[in-house]
Design a protein around this nucleic acid. Sequence first.
DNA 1: GTCACGGCTTAACGTTCGTTAGGCAGCAAG
DNA 2: CTTGCTGCCTAACGAACGTTAAGCCGTGAC
Lengths: 203, 203
Amino acid sequence: MSTRPAGHKAIIEAAREEFSEQGYGATSIRDIAKRAGVSLSALYYYYKGKQDLLVAILEEGLDAYFDACGTALEAAGGDPAEQLEALVTATVQFRIEHPVKSSIVQTEGRSLEPEHLARYRKNEERGTQQFREVIERGIADGVFLTPHPDDARRAVIAMCNAIAQWYRTDGEVTPDELVERYVSLALTVVEYRPRSVRRAARG
Amino acid sequence: MSTRPAGHKAIIEAAREEFSEQGYGATSIRDIAKRAGVSLSALYYYYKGKQDLLVAILEEGLDAYFDACGTALEAAGGDPAEQLEALVTATVQFRIEHPVKSSIVQTEGRSLEPEHLARYRKNEERGTQQFREVIERGIADGVFLTPHPDDARRAVIAMCNAIAQWYRTDGEVTPDELVERYVSLALTVVEYRPRSVRRAARG
DNA sequence: GTCACGGCTTAACGTTCGTTAGGCAGCAAG
DNA sequence: CTTGCTGCCTAACGAACGTTAAGCCGTGAC
């Protein structure tokens, strides 16, 4: 229980990659087993079945992301702009570092059977809720001027999430640069105007 | 040939909806046939097989979107801001009016077999190219001030595309309102500063 | 009247699917 | 030395899959 057997990790990672590349429905457990280098019934030693494996992967994916967000939020100050910066930074970094986890969480929720779907969607909602609260507080504080907080929130989340689909580590832009750009973009989208500058002629 | 038989349309629409809801891999042609109200082999009268049906749906989806973009661009003036407005308007409207087509085009490209995939990805690229050209020209003209046109482009496209996944016609916001908000958001993202206002103290 | 053709149908094909039954090697404890 | 558990394995099950073969039923042409 302390140290996980090698086969277990191989199975989850193989499943993640197959689900991510082909989708849950198009992936057979034989594909997964072959990729993991085990027999197809090794899978049933760790999970009740294919669906159970998907549930575990989705749950872990969401948890890992929320952990990253939580850590970032704690490290940030109470200022809404700083908190939005923390959330965007955590999200961009997570999409860069875990594109496979990210893409599964983003696309394979629909593959859940009804009994798991409701709970998952509710859990997923915590992600948007984090952004919603920060943006609302920024508006209440008068530092975010956007007249449409819901659209701004969806725009910020959508642009961050999309990173998982196009970013390649061998590209030109470094993760740190990308984080900086997206933080800047997000603050632009919510129309951030710092208090200290608001009295000056131009922002 | 002039007027299509009812069965054909029923089959494409049923396939679109099934592919959109469950994904290509998880959809059986028996599901499609049942939804269309025909037998499963009626499908083979119009298409060579399941993959051929997907190809037709994806191709039509892209074409319909590009047609909408082309029409909008022609109606717009030569000003980059007007052209970006036209592209965003066309995209938002298309995502609202055709969420099923949109979601398939966005997610089921990966279900294409290698022989069709390359051509499709190339065709898909025309969409981003349209935005790229308009934004680059706005920068050249000095009216879009964003220092990172690629990130701005991806942000605009991502936020528009996401609409297909959350917008419901029975919601509070009307399509026209949404178009207006997203045009405004897009111009914010590219940091649009009209010439006539640039000389004034504030934007 | 029959002929051809478009628009389907039912029935079956071999394959692959998710899942299960049962067994076997290694190791640690008694 | 055996007992029991962990971590797999091979073999097989029935169900569902994509695809095909063969045929039927209208309608319009001759």
